[in-house]
Simulated scan of single mutants.
Amino acid sequence: MQDEATHRTVDDHREAVAPRRMTRLHRAEALRLLGSVSLGRIVFTQHALPAVRPVNHLMDGDDIIVQLHDGATLTSIVAPSDAIGVVVAYEADVIDPDTHIGWSVVVTGYAHRVTDPGELARFAARLRPWIDHPDMNAALRIQPDLVTGLQLTT
């Protein structure tokens, strides 16, 4: 006989959690929270369609730095000589799956490829990849234009 808990559905869980209040976060607080985690999702255009990839990041002031590797999909979204950059979105969150309390931050801005050896060395010393890759040879710097943060509370 299977345990009754294994038969819980999404609807059962939804009933167990009371609705949460949503509060907008100020830009500075949203960026601070973004800097408190190392994993997020970058949204970019691939073959004229939206694409999403999980990536690790660090904050350099208000900018988000994402590590790149040769052959990776993200490497092709910004050419090294592209002075304008490309528009991307970056999202990270911490939301407890049981209580539904936490936060979410979405940043939209221009991504520029970083190739300066000094900056790359500084970023490589701070970024810890979550998958096995060769040394970092490039990075994306996302300069936030639009920052939206939401806090979920009881």
Rank of each mutant, 00 (worst) to 15 (best):
P144Y: 04
D60L: 04
A30I: 14
G102T: 13
P19W: 01
Q2R: 09
M1R: 09
N137V: 02
L33V: 06
G149M: 03
M22R: 07
S38H: 12
E91W: 10
L127R: 00
T148W: 04
N56V: 12
L152C: 06
L127E: 00
H47L: 13
R21Y: 06
M1V: 03
Y90M: 05
D3R: 08
E119W: 06
G102R: 11
H13A: 05
T9S: 11
A48D: 05
R41W: 07
P134R: 10
G35V: 06
I142N: 00
Q151W: 04
H13W: 00
L49S: 08
A139P: 13
L39G: 08
D145L: 13
A48R: 04
T153K: 01
L25T: 02
V107A: 11
A51L: 03
H47E: 13
R20N: 01
P144L: 01
L34Q: 13
D132H: 05
R53V: 13
W130I: 08
I131L: 02
L25Q: 03
H69K: 11
A125I: 10
A92V: 01
Y90C: 06
V86H: 12
S104Y: 07
L49V: 08
D132R: 12
I131N: 01
H13K: 00
A89D: 10
L68P: 07
D63Y: 09
G61F: 11
H47I: 09
I42F: 03
I84K: 12
F44Y: 15
A111L: 14
P117W: 00
A16P: 00
L74V: 05
Q151G: 00
L39N: 09
R14N: 10
T153N: 02
D145R: 11
Q46I: 11
Q46R: 11
M136W: 02
V105K: 06
L49W: 05
T115Q: 05
H47C: 09
H112P: 07
A79K: 12
D132T: 03
F123H: 11
N56Y: 02
G118L: 03
P50V: 12
E15R: 13
S38C: 06
T23K: 15
D12K: 00
H69G: 14
S104C: 07
T148M: 13
V10E: 04
D11I: 10
D3V: 07
G61P: 06
R21P: 01
A138H: 08
E29Y: 10
T148D: 05
H112E: 12
T6P: 00
D116R: 14
P134D: 14
R122L: 07
I77C: 13
L25A: 02
A16F: 03
P19S: 12
G35W: 11
P129K: 03
A89N: 03
G85F: 14
F123T: 03
E4F: 06
L127I: 09
T75H: 11
T6C: 09
T154Q: 04
H133S: 15
E119Y: 02
A51V: 01
A125H: 06
H13R: 00
L74Q: 01
P144V: 11
H133N: 12
L120N: 09
V43C: 14
I77V: 15
A139D: 07
A72C: 12
A18D: 08
Q2F: 09
H47N: 12
D93M: 07
R126K: 05
D145V: 14
V66R: 01
I65Q: 04
V105I: 09
S104M: 01
